[in-house]
Design a protein around this nucleic acid. Structure first.
Lengths: 103, 103
DNA sequence: ATAACGTACAACCTGATGGTTGTAGATGAA
DNA sequence: TTCATCTACAACCATCAGGTTGTACGTTAT
């Protein structure tokens, strides 16, 4: 899933497919690459569960799945929390006199 | 940066280097790959700004940078927020009668 | 019915990635 | 000093990722 997010084109596709009203062709417009390339990117997003396709006549409308995005975000939350749970607090105090309020 | 996170070994290294007291050699122990391979992974994490190395005698202690992890997390926050800001709310209501409280 | 459109998929090429081994420079220990 | 350890880096290899073109098939429009 992080792999799916590790490509700028795919992240852009993910943003643009937020409201699920764009077909693969419409999404493909505006990129400096072939339709097939964009289609592959969508397939990667789909395999990662970040996006679903809903057939609508002859076109497939692409919609981002916020639950999956939330899962990824939460995974990073864990990483961050794991850090803070250990020497994090101490190191924070040492490096910044005001404390660790960066959120 | 997402690319750096897109590898299980690197995510594990990131977790294990939370408290910054392990050298590259110590980190390399316990993986079924060569020291050089692990060193490359650490280099990738370092280039992505996810980790810093502090020299301590002849060894380099690796420490995860929570600020960078927080940056990635916030990037996903944006994605999620972008989704909810559009038809998100409507779709939420349609798909789950109780509303969208998934956190 | 026929043409045009939207999609899927296979084959192929190129560059990046993840792994290996080998070599070399610093530093700590004997 | 000499030896062992930790690290860095280069060269090499196999596989994968991202891109291309071409073909095929279902659906809508004429």
């Amino acid at each position: 899933m992080f792999h799916a997010l590790a490509d700028a084109t795919r992240r852009d596709l993910l943003r643009r497919s937020a409201d699920g009203e764009l077909s693969v062709s419409r999404l493909a417009d505006g990129y400096a690459m072939s339709f097939a390339a964009v289609q592959k990117h969508v397939a990667v997003l789909e395999r990662a569960g970040l996006v679903t396709k809903e057939r609508h006549g002859r076109e497939r409308l692409v919609r981002a799945d916020p639950v999956a995005v939330g899962r990824a975000r939460r995974a990073l939350d864990e990483l961050e929390a794991a850090w803070r749970g250990r020497v994090g607090r101490m190191a924070d105090l040492l490096s910044s006199p005001t404390g660790g309020e960066d959120r």
